[in-house]
């Protein structure tokens, strides 16, 4: 089934008090957002977030009982199925997109997994974006002290730095550097009191693996490793054999899925356009085949973000596999970003 018939889901997450609800509140008020269904995950007995998101009250399904996490992702299945039923029955026929707001402690990976693997939901929804809000004032503290926070940043397609008006400029700069060091593949935006453009939230993130020298410079500057996270950018100059590459990556993710936090990139597999690869741990989004290349250059690039894995091992392994598969002319080039 093609993506055209599926509803895009945007997952909004971020640490406790980082401004998820404020952001949504502001964005949902903007014109053109009436066709959005919001699923809120309440933490604690009072569904406070639910009352705040008044505008969307009708489309809001409250996910009962705690985290959207491995343990209760049935709630998410139920919430989305309920929404789907309503859409199909014509009660909510105008719905064009879905927003899931998670709790501050939630791990977004199980949400992605649930949507991609559920036998019914996978045909009706796809994950468009994972947006993570980071508090400019407390963000650094959370990153250093809360592993949940680092995990959220790793999974993000887009990072929104909130409360920049309350923090000093150099603190914000430091935070941006640290965020880019942890997750070089994500976009970083800022928002003061939830004032972000809806277009930022609801357009697919640019799929480029390599961003700019700025990104590399940022990761160099920050120096210190955050929670053993390292990232590496791998490029190929010639088209890749998809079968060979798929064998290697599936084996790697099977063995090290827990530690490879993120795989993201554009791959040239010899077709007219590149393949967009996006993975969170061992969950790989269905690869997207683009019609044409966004830029003139046709270079496959791939960013790996991992924990407790030496980037050199990845390269050595990929080289050995490429050699064995008789594609020696197309050995990878690697650049360690952190």
């Amino acid at each position: 089934m093609s993506k055209q018939n599926k509803l895009p889901i945007t997952v909004v997450t971020g640490f406790l008090g980082s401004g998820k609800t404020t952001l949504l509140q502001q964005v949902l008020r903007q014109p053109g957002m009436q066709d959005t269904a919001v699923l809120v995950n309440e933490f604690g007995k009072v569904g406070l977030d639910h009352h705040l998101l008044q505008v969307m009250e009708e489309s809001t399904i409250l996910l009962g009982g705690g985290c959207v996490c491995c343990s209760t992702r049935d709630d998410l299945v139920e919430g989305l199925s309920q929404l789907l039923n309503r859409v199909e029955r014509g009660e909510r026929a105008s719905i064009r997109k879905v927003v899931i707001e998670t709790t501050g402690l939630a791990d977004p990976a199980p949400i992605v997994f649930t949507v991609l693997s559920h036998p019914v939901l996978q045909h009706h929804f796809y994950i468009e974006n994972v947006i993570v809000t980071v508090d400019a004032v407390n963000g650094l503290f959370h990153l250093h002290n809360q592993p949940e926070s680092v995990k959220q940043v790793l999974v993000a397609d887009k990072l929104i730095i909130t409360k920049t008006d309350l923090a000093k400029a150099n603190e914000v700069e430091q935070l941006v550097q640290e965020l880019q060091a942890i997750n070089p593949s994500s976009e970083v935006h800022t928002a003061v009191y939830g004032a972000a453009d809806a277009a930022i939230l609801f357009t697919p993130a640019a799929a480029s693996g390599r961003k700019s020298e700025r990104m590399v410079a940022a990761s160099m500057a920050s120096g210190a490793h955050t929670q053993d996270v390292s990232s590496v950018s791998i490029t190929f100059e010639k088209p890749l054999d998809w079968t060979a590459f798929g064998l290697w990556l599936s084996m790697l993710l099977h063995a090290k899925g827990e530690d490879i936090m993120r795989v993201k990139g554009l791959l040239d597999i010899g077709g007219p356009g590149p393949v967009v690869l996006n993975g969170v741990q061992h969950i790989i989004h269905p690869p997207d085949h683009l019609e044409e290349w966004p830029t003139e250059e046709r270079i496959s690039s791939l960013v790996f973000i991992m924990r407790r894995v030496d980037p050199q091992d990845i390269l050595a392994s990929l080289e050995a596999f490429q050699q064995t598969f008789d594609v020696e002319h197309n050995l990878p080039r690697m650049e360690v970003l952190l």
């Binding site: 036998p119 998809w242 079968t243 798929g246 599936s250 790989i284 085949h289």
Partner: peptide, 14 residues
Amino acid sequence: ILQVHWTDRRTAEG
């Protein structure tokens, strides 16, 4: 077959 593995999505759908 409930799930198409990502490595099998070789060509553009359709």
